[in-house]
Amino acid sequence: MNRLSWFNTVSLTLGFAFLYIPMIILIIFSFNESKLVTVWAGFSTKWYGELINNEAFLNAAWVTLKVAVFSSTIATVLGTMAAYVLVRGGRFLGRTLFSGMIYAPLVMPEVITGLSLLLLFIGIGLDRGVLTIVLAHTTFSMCYVSVVVSSRLVTFDRSLEEAALDLGCSPAQAFRLVTLPIIAPAVISGWLLAFTLSLDDLVIASFTSGPSATTLPIKIFSAVRLGVSPEINALSTIMIAIVTIGVITASLVTKQSRVRAQRDEQAAARAQ
C-alpha cells in the first residue's frame, strides 16, 4: 500500500486543515491594518510595533522566561534523580507512595494542583511571586521529566554501568561518565518539555503568582477575556514562529542522526 486511498487522503487533508487553519487565520490577521480582527483592511506590522512598546507584556514575558528557565532546570535535575530512583532504586520505604507522587501530577487537574499549592504557600506565609511560581512549576514538570527519563532508563543496558564499575569507576563516576552521556537525549527532551510546560501554564501560575509577578499567559488570558485583539494575534504569531522553528530544527536533527546511524550500520556490515 504505497499510495493513499482517496478516503485516507481526504482524512489527512481535512484533519490537518482543522488543526492548522485556525492558527493560519490567527497569523494572517496579526498583519491586519484594522483593529477589527475579522475584517481585512490591508497589510501592516503596526501591532508588532505596539507589542514591542507594551511594557506590561514585555515584563510578563521576561518573568515567564525566568520562571521557565529556573523551573525547567531544577525540574530536570530532580526529575532525573526521581527517574533513577524509580528504575534503579530497588526497594525502599514508601516506594509506592513515591511512584504515586510521580504519576499523580500528570493526571491531576491543574485547578487542583494550583489551589493546593496556593493554600500551602499561604499556610507557611510565603509571599507569592516568582519564587512560588518556580516552586509550583518545578513540582509538576519534574514529574514529566521523570517519566521521559525513566522510559529511557528502562531500556538502558545495565551491564554498561556494571562494566564501568568493573573497570574502576566509583558509582558516581559511572553515572557521570557512562549513564548520563547515554541518556542525555532523554534528559534534554525532558528539559524542553518542562520548559514548554512552564511557558504555557496559565492555571497554576494564576494561583501561585502574586501582584509582583505576572506571567505572559496570565497577561494574555486577562486580555483575551475581553475579546479578540490584534496585539494578541501578533504575540501569538511570534510564539508560534518560535515553536515551529524549534520543532522543525529538532526533527531535522533527529532525521540527520538517523541517516547517519543507517550509514554507520551499513559500514559495519561491510566491515565484517
Binding site: 554498561l160 556494571e162 564501568a164 564499575l165 574502576g168 557512562v178
Partner: peptide, 20 residues
C-alpha cells in the same frame, strides 16, 4: 572489596561497549 577496587575484570555477554 567493591567491584571497582577488585583486580578482576569482566567481559560482558552483551559486550557492554560504551556507545558514546
Amino acid at each position: 572489596v567493591p567491584p571497582n577496587k577488585r583486580a578482576v575484570n569482566m567481559m560482558f555477554q552483551s559486550y557492554a561497549l560504551f556507545p558514546h
